[in-house]
Design a protein around this nucleic acid. Sequence first.
DNA 1: CTAAAAGATGTTAGCGCTAACACGTCCAAG
DNA 2: CTTGGACGTGTTAGCGCTAACATCTTTTAG
Lengths: 325, 325
Amino acid sequence: MSDIARLAGVSPMTVSRVVNGDARVRAATREKVEAVIRETGYVPDPAARILARAGGGRIGLLYANPSNAYLAEVLSGALEGARSVGLLLLIEPSRAGAPDEEREAVRRLAAGGAQGVIVPPPLGESLATLDAIAASGMKAVVLAAPVMRDGLVSLRVDDRGAAHEMTQYLLDLGHRQIGFVEGRQDQSASADRRQGAQAAVDAIDGAVLWAEAGDFTYRSGFEAGQRLLARSQRPTAIFASNDDMAAGVLAAVHAAGLSTPGDISVAGFDDTYLAAGVWPTLTTIRQPVAEMARAAAVILGRGGEEDGPVPHQFVARESTASPSD
Amino acid sequence: MSDIARLAGVSPMTVSRVVNGDARVRAATREKVEAVIRETGYVPDPAARILARAGGGRIGLLYANPSNAYLAEVLSGALEGARSVGLLLLIEPSRAGAPDEEREAVRRLAAGGAQGVIVPPPLGESLATLDAIAASGMKAVVLAAPVMRDGLVSLRVDDRGAAHEMTQYLLDLGHRQIGFVEGRQDQSASADRRQGAQAAVDAIDGAVLWAEAGDFTYRSGFEAGQRLLARSQRPTAIFASNDDMAAGVLAAVHAAGLSTPGDISVAGFDDTYLAAGVWPTLTTIRQPVAEMARAAAVILGRGGEEDGPVPHQFVARESTASPSD
DNA sequence: CTAAAAGATGTTAGCGCTAACACGTCCAAG
DNA sequence: CTTGGACGTGTTAGCGCTAACATCTTTTAG
């Protein structure tokens, strides 16, 4: 940094101010410094930056499920958000369902000087983690989970509304017998999605919703699909609470010698990479996971409290159509 | 740290030595310090640590595919490896196929003081990235890719051998008409896997391998599966070059009104979460991705050169059996 | 045209840690 | 007994940056 300062003919402090976007630098000076930075390719040392901010400037990201595409998106969003507000992101593995490990992970983050924590699912519904965070005095933003403790900020889509929207779409296509595959009962989004679907169906005369249990896995979707197809009165559309299960339903439909969307429409939720990878591609609801993680980092950085539902997006693809008859 | 030192009655330097596992500390002193650390829950500040190491002690992780379960595993492995050797992990997004962005990502890592870089696929086969790393003077460990430039360390399973092993397994079960779904041609592992499968088949009289093109996506597996099933002489087993494609093959088999493994055995490669999630669960080859990433971090930390193939693991599940006839 | 306020820049100190060296202390060999 | 060396520990300095305050320069109002 002092090299830059010398080349630009200013003090290191001024360089720091330019780098940090301090408004109190004259435009001419700023440009001069920026030119030198551009020429030299200087990048400030994140470690030194954080250190100088004396314990501040750090946020943590807890994660519990290492082999999960969702995590990768959370990570890249959080990374970008943290960078944009000049924060260091501490990444800490945890383990959902093991309260001691969860607490230990939180403790490590606190000891590492984090002022806030981003809590992706499924940790966001773990009281052990949430209480440990509260006890440590850190802020927390939970992703895709309800507020289970005071003082948390929650970033989630309107699961109920989104499920309503998808169901309405199926109804509008003309479907009246709709199968529904539920998610795990210990995640509150599952109930929300079911309620949304139910509400949409209830508003239409003659429409029915047949719900089957599931647990968010491909396999449970496959099995639920088989049960739905075995009914004497077969649904013409099946809405699964996530894409993995929808892919399972798709397999069950094909295994029964039926086609999608010709015989049965299938819809998913989440828009994971599977949704666009399976055949036919899935009509689904997109959750802006990376965006949410970025927003979480920014909120923790600014100390803001910008709660409220995150906009989801309806994505129509090949797996849905009007019933053939 | 000075608090710990005071409580343990030693100098901060001794605490540092204990924390870093320096051998020159008397056992009694070490225990005393460790006891205090345990009591207080002290965790050294990573930022300060790195800074004090004056530019050293950092390695980078490049990533190009944010919505990928593979990345999440690489990340957690690299994180753990870096921690175990006391390194700071700088994580930098890149974009495969955009040479300028790739170079820029490498430059940022270099500017951030990284001494080495972990390069997961598909960046490991990008000359733009590799050459930029070489130009910056950093070391590199590429994951699951061949050595395309001198001085690289490559960590990969023996793709050819693993594919041979899987094919041999199918042959041992009694299959003689084996379908094979290839991966993308621009990744060298694809050719290796095909050659391994071919070699196994060539060694058995009367055995044949029918290869179909694919690109590692579910959809391409589905389509390749349909082509294989449409042959006048149908294969009794299909080996896909990755799990996504194997899942696609599974769907094609079911769509054709056939069962797995009753009519057709299906095998995959990689052992992603899909492999255990689909129904029936897939017989596949497990690549220890997290292990590889951890090893990469350790190698970069120690400056080691421990090249050579990483052991893979054959995983038998439900999707394979002897041909019914 | 001057004084006070506001704006722009520089100075000093220190974030928490670790190299590098300096300093004891104890041992073995002469 | 010495004395050189191995060993264990402390001291000093500084990693690259930024708060907080000090200083200098411009404005603006009276």
